[in-house]
Design a binder for these strands. Structure first.
Lengths: 122, 122
DNA sequence: CGGGATCCCCATAGATACTG
DNA sequence: CAGTATCTATGGGGATCCCG
């Protein structure tokens, strides 16, 4: 048996995950929702540097990807809440790992990424 | 003490990590190198759908970010090898986690991502 | 309050061709 | 074999305005 090139299993999975997290605010949004920030206006207050449109776009994508669910309350004024789905919840540990690696190497990384990362939320 | 908005620790780290992995082929390249595929020509054979230029660009970025090191052998024909740095090696478990999540939910994800993901290496 | 629609910029990355 | 220069296309994301 040949070594089957690169372990497809290794590459593909991470590509899928990257695809799901692809978008400037997605991981942040998931973190927000996980913390109980469920309404669009609250998220916007959380992330002042993100435009409303982009938030909407990315929330739609997250919803479409099955990571979050959207509840519309037919009230006045309008009210919307987002919640994590099981799939979304299962992604949290992954984000947490990325989180920890990023924090562990923050010093080195910020030096090198300087300029690319204008505004970190914090 | 107020709750300090969103846990900065949670968001920032993952943003840094995402930034480092940002690029179509980066995680794949890291996986390649980790598996002992160290020469550009070999990587290109591995990833026929990636152009030479893009691979070079992304390898440069990885190098600049301190994840890999580049060794140039002053021979003829030219020979170059890339190796993981300690920082790069430390990122492998993270990729592995992303990998596993992606594989675990492959079925659901591929349905939804259909179209976005044209060609998975595998 | 929540959500489009439109316009515009720029970074990513593909194709191609050329140099050491 | 390795790397670079141009040109181009695509799409992510910012700003702004308007509608339920």
């Amino acid at each position: 048996m040949y070594q089957k090139k690169i372990a497809n299993t290794l590459t593909c999975g991470s590509v899928l995950t990257k695809e799901v997290l692809h978008g400037k605010w997605k991981s942040t949004l998931l973190a927000c929702i996980a913390q109980g920030i469920q309404r669009p206006s609250a998220m916007q207050r959380m992330l002042p540097s993100a435009s409303r449109r982009v938030l909407n776009v990315q929330l739609s994508e997250l919803e479409h990807h099955g990571l979050i669910s959207k509840t519309i309350f037919p009230e006045l004024p309008p009210k919307v809440e987002y919640h994590l789905t099981d799939l979304g919840r299962s992604l949290l540990p992954v984000i947490e790992v990325m989180e920890q690696w990023g924090n562990a190497h923050r010093t080195e990384l910020e030096q090198v990424l300087a300029g690319n990362i204008a505004e970190l939320p914090g």
